[in-house]
Amino acid sequence: MQILISNSSKEPIYEQITTQIKKQILTGDLQEGQALPSMRQLAKDLQISVITTKRAYEELEKNGFIYSIVGKGSFVSEQNTEMIKERKMKVIEEKLLEAIQNSRDMGIGLAELKEMLTLLYSEDE
């Protein structure tokens, strides 16, 4: 599991953690049932206080991303596939929007962009 936090960011540290873990769950980097590091371990690794990681894990648990078993730790929950699909669609949309924005900035038209997409898509296969 990779987490990067920034002390100078406006976003509170626990939120940075939840956002990144959520993302990794949605993208499948963290698989269902996979164990997360204990909150004390994570606090040590990130050099932040235990209460911050505790809060992050509590938020994730509240939103159904992870579950905890006393004495064993925290694990990634089974995800509702419909919901995940929906979320993933959203991620795709966001990325595409980003690409479109970049294209517009550089004056690349829709046709050219489509071409690029087709090329990249088939290349990856």
């Binding site: 509170p12 540290i13 626990y14 050099q47 206080s49 235990v50 209460i51 911050t52 809060r55």
Partner: peptide
């Protein structure tokens, strides 16, 4: 490192709060 902060001023308790 700190989870909680206790702040005293002039011999009086000002607050005890979670750091965040």
């Amino acid at each position: 490192i700190a989870d909680y902060i206790i702040f005293v001023n002039n011999g009086e308790h000002v607050f005890t709060k979670e750091f965040y």
